[in-house]
């Protein structure tokens, strides 16, 4: 997504976008990308405004298009219901494809792991350095930090623990993380 589209999207969030740029956005080739960005921003904005809406998965594009074309909203709802009905009948075919895919991949993976535990170990050993190498290049050793830096690290740990101590619904684990962060490092 280029800068101009991103700009349009963000002004849409502020209700400031003009029609032309909205149309351009809607005709962007990668609607998946556009929708993803919109949803991420929307989620964050909802949170800022404390409106938790379960609507994050609703396709906004269709609604906006309908509004631009001057169609009443109800009509687009009707079409989407009809489409839902139709797609329910088509669904088994899609499901079959999905099953084939999943079975194809899933069976292979499961079988590998069970039959050859040794090979799985090697695989995961390979994966680990691949995953952590680029990060390890710039490990921050705690002993290299001075007091002020250590305290800043602790502060981050604390605030993070605090965000999901009670909130994460993990009860005691959350508290424990909190206390652990508050204590020595």
């Amino acid at each position: 997504m280029d800068e101009r589209l991103r700009e349009t999207l963000s002004s849409m969030m502020d209700d400031e976008a003009d029609e032309l740029s909205v149309r351009r956005l809607l005709s962007h080739s990668d609607q998946h990308d556009v929708r993803g960005q919109w949803q991420r921003w929307q989620q964050i904005r909802d949170l800022m405004h404390e409106q938790h809406s379960p609507a994050s998965a609703i396709d906004v594009a269709a609604g906006v298009r309908a509004a631009l074309d001057g169609r009443p909203e109800s009509r687009s709802e009707k079409t989407s219901v009809a489409e839902a009905g139709r797609s329910a009948w088509r669904w088994p075919v899609a499901a079959m494809v999905a099953v084939a895919l999943v079975v194809g991949f899933g069976a292979g993976a499961g079988w590998d792991g069970d039959a050859l535990p040794g090979s799985r170990d090697i695989a995961s050993n390979d994966a680990v350095p691949a995953l952590s190498l680029p990060v390890a290049e710039q490990q921050v050793g705690l002993q290299e930090l001075d007091d002020a830096q250590l305290q800043q690290m602790r502060q981050f740990l604390l605030e993070h623990a605090q965000h999901n101590s009670v909130g994460a619904g993990r009860g005691s684990v959350g508290y424990a993380r909190l206390v652990s962060a508050g204590n020595h490092y």
């Binding site: 604390l158 605030e159 999901n164 909130g167 204590n183």
Partner: peptide
């Protein structure tokens, strides 16, 4: 109730936000 450990500002330890419901409202 937390002992002041000097270097860490412990009032930061308290869960201070409206977090309790934040996670559970997300299914």
């Amino acid at each position: 109730v937390l002992p002041d450990r000097g270097r860490v500002r412990l009032d930061e330890v308290i869960p201070s936000g409206p977090f309790a419901e934040a996670f559970s409202s997300q299914l």
